[in-house]
């Protein structure tokens, strides 16, 4: 239930963000149906909305999508999915389904994965449509503060990921890199450069081991 409310709220915000960025309602809904991984979708519309190039928008979405590859590896060890069902399981491989499947009691990982996947897919796409239609009808996004809703959404997402002091440092470094890069690079590039903030932490971990 907690996941349902969060996905609904997040989907509404994404629908509104897509239309505010300049995409049509149909394009915004296509992202939720086809891309179906929230942070990548938000990054893509964020870069496009800021006037970024197509390549930067795609690269940002892909960088944020890399963790789904590792989720799939972990899920593969938990649930036996064979043949064409793998194609469907792949599309449903996201934060929420991985979290529920890994937290499920022994033997119920498969049930948890498919049930969470199906309900999040339906809820996410329904909420995206409502958010997009709502934002399209409301008119001037600036007067309603909708452009300020997007950074707030990213901040709320970020807060879920930052649990330790070391990850807070990575977040602040990423923010600083982006702020320094904004005046000197085209839109979309500051976000990609911020990925470099993970390098020191990865190298440091290697020295410790």
């Amino acid at each position: 239930m907690g996941i349902g409310a969060a996905v609904g709220a997040y989907g509404l915000s994404f629908g509104a963000a897509g239309v505010t960025a300049g995409l049509s309602t149909l394009q915004t809904c296509a992202l939720s149906l086809l891309l179906f991984t929230g942070a990548s979708q938000f990054a893509l519309v964020g870069v496009l909305g800021a006037g970024g190039a197509a390549v930067a928008a795609v690269a940002g979405a892909l960088l944020l999508g890399t963790r789904n590859t590792l989720y799939a590896v972990r899920l593969g060890t938990l649930l036996p999915v064979r043949g064409p069902r793998r194609l469907l399981a792949a599309q449903l491989t996201i934060d929420e389904t991985t979290g529920m499947a890994t937290a499920a009691p022994e033997g119920l990982a498969g049930t948890a994965f498919w049930a969470t996947g199906a309900s999040v897919y339906v809820l996410w796409n329904g909420a995206t449509l409502l958010g997009a239609l709502g934002a399209a009808r409301l008119g001037d996004p600036g007067a309603l503060g909708l452009d300020a809703a997007v950074p707030a959404a990213f901040l709320a997402l970020l807060a879920l990921q930052v649990r330790a002091r070391s990850t807070l440092a990575v977040a602040l470094s990423g923010a600083l890199i982006a702020a320094l890069a904004i005046p000197f690079t085209p839109a979309g590039v500051p976000v990609l450069l911020a990925a470099l903030a993970v390098v020191p932490l990865i190298l440091r971990r290697r020295r410790e081991t």
Binding site: L63, D147, L158, L172, A175, V191, A194
Partner: peptide
């Protein structure tokens, strides 16, 4: 570690860019 950490600076950068 890289795949787990990557979303953090990217989301932080998106906050700055969007705001």
């Amino acid at each position: 570690r890289a795949a787990v950490l990557l979303p953090i600076p990217l989301l932080a950068a998106l906050v700055v860019v969007q705001a």
